[in-house]
Each structure stands twice: as C-alpha cells, then as structure tokens.
Design a protein around this nucleic acid. Structure first.
Lengths: 175, 175
DNA sequence: ATCACTTCTTAAGGTATCTTAATTTTTATC
DNA sequence: GATAAAAATTAAGATACCTTAAGAAGTGAT
C-alpha cells in the first residue's frame, strides 16, 4: 500500500510554507512526523483551515496539480515535521498507471471523498457546538495537540467563540 | 467512458424516494433525464441538500455502499426523471476490477473530490450572498430550473433569506 | 376559468456567532 | 528565571442570518 513514488524524507520547521497561493502544485506531501495544514485566506484576510495532516496523512492541492492551475491554498508546517515528497504527475492522467497503483489511488480517493462529504454535511446542518464536539470525537488526539485557534479555524468559527463554547460545555458537564 | 454496469433505464416520478435514511445502499443512479437530489435531515427536522443530479450526473451514498452501513441521507426525484441503476458492489473493493474501469473510477472520484473540496472552502469562507453568486456561476442552468427553496437549502440558508438576498442583488445591479 | 397548493416575498423581532478590545495564561527565548 | 511573544479568556456591542407569520404570486388539476 505504498506504491506512490516517494523521495527520501525532508525536515521542515514549524512555520515553513510548502505551497503558496498562486503556485502550481507539482508535489504533494506525506507526513512522517509532525503536522502540516492547508488553508485558504478569504476576501477579508481571514484564514480557514481545510485539512490537518499529522503522521501518515497526505496533503496537497489536488485541483492545482490535476489541472495545472494556480493554487488557491497554502500549505505550511504547524509543527516541526518530517515529510516525504510525492510527485503529483500521476494525478493528471490515470491511463498509464499500473493496476496496483490505481487500486491504491481509488481507495484513497474514495475514502477521502466520503470524509469530505461528511464535513459538508456537518457545515450545512450542525451548530458550532455540535461541530466542535464532532471534531473532538473524530480527532481526539488532534484536540490535545493543536492550539484552540487552529481547531476553531477548521470548524469554521472564531477562537473567541470556541473558547466560549468550551466553557459552556465544561460547565454543563459539571452538573 | 461508460463501463459501469448499468441496467436499462427506469422512470421515476417527482417525489419518488430512491434511498431513505437507514437503508443500506446497494445501488447508485445515473440520471438520463430529469433531476434527483440527495439530502440530510438535521436534528431539528430541517432538510439540507447535498447534491443535485441533473442529466448525466451520478448520485448515491458512497459511505453506505462502501461500508455497508445504514445511510444518513435520502435520495429522491425533484422532477419526473429517467434513471439508470448502477450496482455499487464495485465500490467496496477495487482489487478485482479491470484496469479500464479503475481509470474511469479514479478520474470520477478525483473530480468529485476537487468539487467537494471547493464546496467546503465556500462554506467556510464565503458569506451567504457570495455562495449564492458562486452557485449561479457554477450551475447557471440549475438556477433557472430549480425552485429557490432548493437552492437555498443547497447553499445552506433559508428560502426567506435567499429571497431577501436576491432582491438586494437585483437592486444593486439596477444602479 | 376556478380552486387548491406550493412557492415566493416581505417584514419584524430573535439568536448564533462575530468583532473589538482588554486581561490573563501559557509558551518560547535569551 | 526574566522577558517577550503567542494563545486563551472574558465581556460588550454588532451583524448575518433565522424564525415566524402573513400575504402575493405562481402552478397544476378539474
């Protein structure tokens, strides 16, 4: 289950930017240790996190890599990390790939799509509080590990409001 | 580009339900004419539309079909439609599929994932007004064709508020 | 054409979530 | 271990969007 062409690993420091708005993505990343994230910056300059990628996760801009167009997102390291670099050549055209790799790709794409669909459902139909609780259940280790403001950005609320929610939640649990 | 096992077509009437909450999905649908939609019902009984499927689109519950678990969604016809029924057996395990089919699947999954990611970005970072304008640009034919309340549900707002937004938008264009 | 039904509009008041800003707590650095 | 820097908390006021409700305008069936 690891047939993607992978370079030897590389170390990056917290804060290092691996992909910027406007770049055309030619590589994606597999995180060996540490944590990366992808995010957009909206019209009013605010960041919104699309993905966290801790150990064993992949991260990249599939749209930019597939369609050779300038990226709308940023990818950076939110912890000192060790990463493998993966060429995204394969994404553009699947016809010449080996069968084994195709099976791996399809499986990853399918699972990613299922997860992303769940996130859409959550954003459409759940309150901020519900989304936060979902996040803690889905990513219990990340909740411990990441600063509150990054979690707030991922679930689509401000850090101030998440702080508030946490207080309310812990208050209601004490009874 | 049409190697999925497809039955002969079937006619369904507006309002017919093809998949209900709690069902385990064993089929997906390709729409030949008309339009289907998928949606969830939230904690307070409100519908949220996940997808519209007009002509030539596929629709189904990939999570339920892949993992053989009860669906969280509904699929129904929002117009009288003609559909082809596709077995979702293939989704569970890709290892035994022909290469050609794998290429087709991967491509569809990749494109779907790119589109779904864009929707997440939009829900996280755009206002209701911006999301509506995006929708009109992305699906100009659907805007004409679908009732306002379904569009509102898709972009994550109430029909009353969308009606308001439309008025404001047309007012600002008249100047 | 008429009646029922659904969709759309409009408006008033309400709520979830945001903004701003000041204070406290935690973390990192020399 | 002191100081600076970053993160988290708290609170007050603001706003985007929702709820409710009532009327208007379409749409379909007889």
């Amino acid at each position: 289950m690891d047939n993607l062409k992978i370079s030897k690993t590389k170390k990056v420091s917290k804060g290092d930017i691996l992909l910027s708005f406007g770049d055309i993505a030619t590589t994606a990343y597999k995180v060996e240790s540490g944590c990366l994230r992808s995010y957009v910056i909206d019209n009013v300059g605010k960041e919104h996190i699309l993905q966290f990628a801790p150990e064993d996760w992949f991260i990249g801009d599939m749209d930019s890599a597939t369609n050779k167009k300038p990226s709308n997102i940023f990818i950076d390291a939110i912890e000192d990390s060790e990463i493998s670099i993966i060429s995204t050549e394969v994404l553009k055209d699947f016809t010449n790939l080996e069968k084994e790799l195709l099976v791996e790709m399809s499986t990853k794409l399918r699972n990613n799509l299922i997860a992303t669909n769940k996130r859409v459902i959550s954003l459409l139909s759940a309150t901020a509080k519900e989304r936060y609780i979902e996040f803690t259940e889905t990513y219990p280790t990340l909740v411990q590990r990441l600063p509150l403001k990054l979690i707030a950005s991922y679930i689509g609320i401000t850090p101030e409001y998440l702080s508030d929610l946490r207080r309310k939640i812990s208050k209601s649990q004490k009874k």
